[in-house]
Amino acid sequence: ELELEEVDLYRMNSQDKLGLTVCYRTDDEDDIGIYISEIDPNSIAAKDGRIREGDRIIQINGIEVQNREEAVALLTSEENKNFSLLIARP
């Protein structure tokens, strides 16, 4: 049973970094989820404190993420200042 949490992050300008590194968990081929492998200690996500390494990203801004490229594109989008992440953890 996964616990879901919605985390809203806000950046003042497009130079601010959310600070999330995303990856696949390669140990299970059936698991195509996108996971947070690293959080930059000086980033918006780290200061917010709710997202943890190992969390799975389900949605970004209401869009279900299917692959790492999509997640990276959404997280690094210059147009977005508000990010709503739906994350899951066991």
Rank of each mutant, 00 (worst) to 15 (best):
E1G: 03
E1R: 02
E1Q: 03
L2D: 03
L2W: 03
E3D: 12
E3W: 04
E3L: 09
L4Q: 15
L4V: 11
L4E: 07
L4K: 10
E5G: 04
E5I: 15
E5C: 09
E5H: 12
E6A: 14
E6Q: 04
V7L: 09
V7N: 00
V7M: 04
V7D: 00
V7Y: 08
V7R: 01
D8S: 05
D8M: 01
D8C: 04
D8A: 03
L9D: 01
L9Q: 01
R11E: 02
R11M: 06
R11G: 15
R11T: 03
R11C: 02
R11V: 04
M12A: 07
M12P: 10
M12L: 12
M12E: 06
M12V: 12
M12H: 13
S14T: 14
S14A: 14
S14L: 09
Q15R: 07
Q15M: 11
D16Q: 09
D16F: 05
K17E: 06
K17G: 11
L18D: 02
G19S: 01
L20P: 01
L20V: 11
T21P: 02
T21M: 06
T21K: 06
V22I: 12
V22W: 12
C23W: 06
C23V: 10
Y24M: 13
Y24S: 12
R25N: 13
R25Y: 15
T26E: 10
T26C: 04
T26W: 02
T26A: 06
D27I: 12
D27W: 05
D28S: 12
D28N: 11
D28E: 05
D30H: 13
D30Y: 13
D31L: 13
D31T: 14
D31K: 11
I32V: 15
G33V: 14
G33S: 10
G33N: 15
G33R: 03
G33H: 15
I34L: 09
I34S: 07
I34C: 14
Y35C: 14
Y35E: 13
Y35K: 12
Y35S: 12
Y35G: 04
I36R: 00
I36L: 04
S37N: 08
S37K: 10
S37F: 05
S37V: 10
E38L: 12
E38V: 08
E38W: 05
I39G: 01
I39D: 01
I39Y: 01
D40T: 13
D40V: 13
P41M: 12
P41N: 12
P41W: 08
N42P: 02
N42V: 09
S43M: 04
S43H: 07
I44W: 02
A45V: 12
A46P: 01
A46N: 02
K47A: 13
K47S: 12
K47M: 13
K47H: 09
D48V: 03
D48N: 11
D48T: 06
G49H: 09
R50K: 09
R50C: 02
R50Q: 12
I51W: 01
I51E: 00
R52A: 12
R52E: 15
E53F: 06
E53G: 07
E53P: 09
G54R: 06
G54S: 04
G54V: 00
G54T: 05
D55R: 01
D55I: 01
R56N: 11
R56F: 13
R56D: 02
R56P: 00
R56Q: 09
R56G: 08
I57A: 01
I58R: 14
I58C: 08
I58Y: 11
I60D: 00
I60F: 03
I60E: 00
N61A: 02
G62W: 02
G62K: 09
G62V: 00
I63V: 14
I63N: 08
E64H: 04
E64P: 05
V65F: 14
Q66P: 14
Q66R: 10
Q66W: 10
N67R: 07
N67V: 15
R68W: 13
R68N: 08
E69Q: 11
E70P: 03
E70R: 05
A71H: 04
V72R: 09
V72P: 02
V72D: 14
A73Y: 10
L75F: 07
T76E: 11
T76S: 07
T76A: 08
T76H: 04
T76K: 15
S77M: 08
E78A: 10
E79W: 06
N80E: 07
K81P: 09
K81A: 14
K81C: 07
N82Q: 06
N82Y: 14
F83N: 03
S84I: 09
L85E: 01
L85P: 00
L86T: 14
L86S: 14
L86N: 09
L86E: 08
I87W: 00
A88V: 03
A88E: 15
R89M: 01
R89I: 01
R89G: 03
R89E: 01
P90R: 03
P90N: 09
